[in-house]
Structures are given as structure tokens and as C-alpha cells.
């Protein structure tokens, strides 16, 4: 766009345009992309809100204040509040180890971090069922101490942590690798301790990338369906998260309520997208790791 504006001031005749496609081709390609986006992304989003508000705003509000729904929202927030900070710590630790140190099995660790991305979430859930189920060793042992993992909140938290683990680490590894170890070495040579170096140098260098990773991690933690569905047991008002609540309401033909809860998730997605865009716009170079000062 900027290019076109600046070219408009120049005599067009003498200079060949740097873009060789004819205007027709460009318009066709751009409208094809826009039509695709409208059909597959914008339209469904609109439908969610239209359906949610079909019976009016009062119905929308009462659907959201229904006790089971409120408890689903609470559970989702709780799970995210546990899973996201833990993954923040794990992610920073893993990225720090991978980017700043040389050790055997590094490639294996990177593969391991990517594992949750490559495994279907349903399988992630099933793994926990096998690990903590009635037929397993761990399940009954924990149960004898009164700790329920499966079909209870701990299971949901575990499954969510597993599925959302890569987000922070994946965001930070390339960034930290790109930044290298120069700043840390400089801090150490100036007498800073390891912890001071991390707190005063490493952490500020990655803060925007970290925030970005946390945002994505949070969006996924709140929206995760597959893995949580397997381990939750779908106990109404107890182990239902928002995505599960959407499904239950929908299966009961309670479309308005179902879409009302879905609209909250859609709002979360829009909010994440907005924050993400602001971050990319303002601190793009810090996130992509392209900043070489």
C-alpha cells in the first residue's frame, strides 16, 4: 500500500513498475484471499454472536449466569491460572537451557518439547487415563491418600499443562538463541551473579516474547477441548470447563446458551488476537528476535 502511494507521485510512463503482475491479477488474488477469510473465519464468528443473542440480551445474560455455566467459567479460569504460570516457568527454564548451554541430548529435549504439538490432544488425555485410571498403579495409590486425579480438577490441570507446554518454550527458544550469550557473559564479567544476570539481563531481553508466548498459552489453556474432555468425566458444575459446557449445552439442543458460552471463548480469542497484534506491532523486533542493537 505504501509503495503504491509513493509511486503515484512519480511520472508513471518512464519507469517500469517493480511489480510485474497486472492490476487484474492482483485484484483477483487479493479478493480470493479475502473471500476465503470472510467465509471461513469472519462468517462463523458472526454466526456465534448472532446465535448467542438470538433470544435477546436478557436471555444471553441469564444463560451466562446459570450456575453450571458459572462453575464452568470458574473452573476454566482456575485451570488457566494454574497451568499458565507453571508453563511460564517450565518454558523459560527449558528455553534457557536449550539456548544458552551445550549439553548432550539437547536435540532430544527440543523434540520432546514439540511432542504435545504432534500428538493428538485426545491421545494426551488418554495417556493420563492410563496413568491415573482405576487399572493403573498410580491411580489407586493416590486414591488411598484421598487424591483424585482422573475425572477431577488435578487431571484437567495436568492435561492442560501437557497440551499447552510448547507455547512459551517455542516462542522463547529462537529468540534466546538469536540473542546469544554475549549479554550474559558481559553481565558475569562485570561481577553479576547467575541470578542477577537472569533477573537483570536475560529476563528483560525476552520480556515481550515471553508475554507473547503466555498469551498464546493462555488462549489454548482456556480453549482446550480434546485432552480435557477425556480426563474430565463431564461432571456438571464440577469438572466441566467452558469448551465442554458448550458441547453439553449444544447436545441438549440449548443452542442459545451454548452459543452464549461459545461467544465468551470467541471474545477471548479476539482479545488475544488484539493483544498479539499490538505486541507484534510495537515490539515485533523483540519478539522475532531480529533486534541487533
Amino acid at each position: 500500500m505504501v509503495l503504491e502511494v509513493s509511486f503515484a507521485h512519480q511520472p508513471a510512463a518512464s519507469q517500469p513498475a517493480p511489480i510485474t503482475e497486472t492490476p487484474v491479477v492482483r485484484i483477483v488474488l487479493i479478493s480470493a484471499a479475502l473471500a476465503f477469510l470472510a467465509f471461513f473465519l469472519v462468517l462463523p464468528l458472526i454466526v456465534v454472536f448472532v446465535e448467542a443473542l438470538r433470544n435477546g440480551f436478557d436471555a444471553y445474560r441469564s444463560a451466562l449466569t446459570e450456575p453450571d455455566t458459572v462453575s464452568a467459567i470458574r473452573l476454566t479460569l482456575l485451570v488457566a491460572a494454574i497451568a499458565v504460570p507453571l508453563n511460564l516457568v517450565f518454558g523459560v527454564a527449558a528455553a534457557w537451557a536449550i539456548a544458552k548451554f551445550e549439553f548432550k541430548g539437547k536435540a532430544f529435549l527440543i523434540t520432546l518439547i514439540d511432542l504435545p504439538f504432534s500428538v493428538s490432544p485426545v491421545i494426551s488425555g488418554l495417556v493420563y487415563v492410563l496413568l491415573f485410571g482405576a487399572g493403573s498403579v498410580l491411580g489407586p495409590w493416590l486414591k488411598s491418600y484421598g487424591i483424585e486425579v482422573l475425572f477431577a480438577v488435578p487431571g484437567i490441570v495436568l492435561a492442560t499443562i501437557f497440551v499447552t507446554f510448547p507455547f512459551v518454550a517455542r516462542e522463547l527458544i529462537p529468540l534466546m538463541q538469536d540473542q546469544g550469550t554475549g549479554d550474559e557473559e558481559a553481565a558475569l564479567s562485570l561481577g553479576a551473579s547467575g541470578w542477577q544476570t537472569f533477573r537483570l539481563v536475560t529476563l528483560p531481553n525476552i520480556r515481550w516474547g515471553l508475554l507473547y508466548g503466555v498469551l498464546l498459552c493462555n488462549a489454548r489453556a482456556m480453549g482446550e477441548f480434546g485432552a480435557v474432555s477425556v480426563v474430565s468425566g463431564h461432571v456438571r458444575g464440577l469438572t466441566n470447563t467452558m469448551p465442554l459446557q458448550v458441547e453439553i449445552l449444544y447436545n441438549e439442543y440449548n443452542f442459545a446458551a451454548s452459543f452464549a458460552v461459545a461467544s465468551l471463548l470467541a471474545l477471548l480469542a479476539l482479545l488475544t488476537l488484539g493483544l498479539k497484534s499490538i505486541l507484534e506491532f510495537r515490539y515485533g523486533d523483540h519478539i522475532a528476535g531480529a533486534s541487533k542493537h
Binding site: 554475549g182 549479554d183 553481565a187 537483570l200 528483560p204 541487533k292
Partner: peptide, 27 residues
């Protein structure tokens, strides 16, 4: 207690010039 100067400067990008210079004393 060595002073080390790196080829690519390794200045702390989120600190001002004065904060960079004072870092070794601050820690």
C-alpha cells in the same frame, strides 16, 4: 575482576547508557 569488551558490544539494550556503565557497581 576483568574488564571484557565484546566485538558486538553486548550492551544491555533495555538500560540507558548510564545504567549500562553503572551495572558492574550496582550488582
Amino acid at each position: 575482576h576483568v574488564g571484557f569488551v565484546f566485538q558486538h558490544y553486548a550492551l544491555f539494550r533495555h538500560m540507558t547508557v548510564a545504567e549500562n556503565v553503572g551495572f558492574g557497581l550496582k550488582v
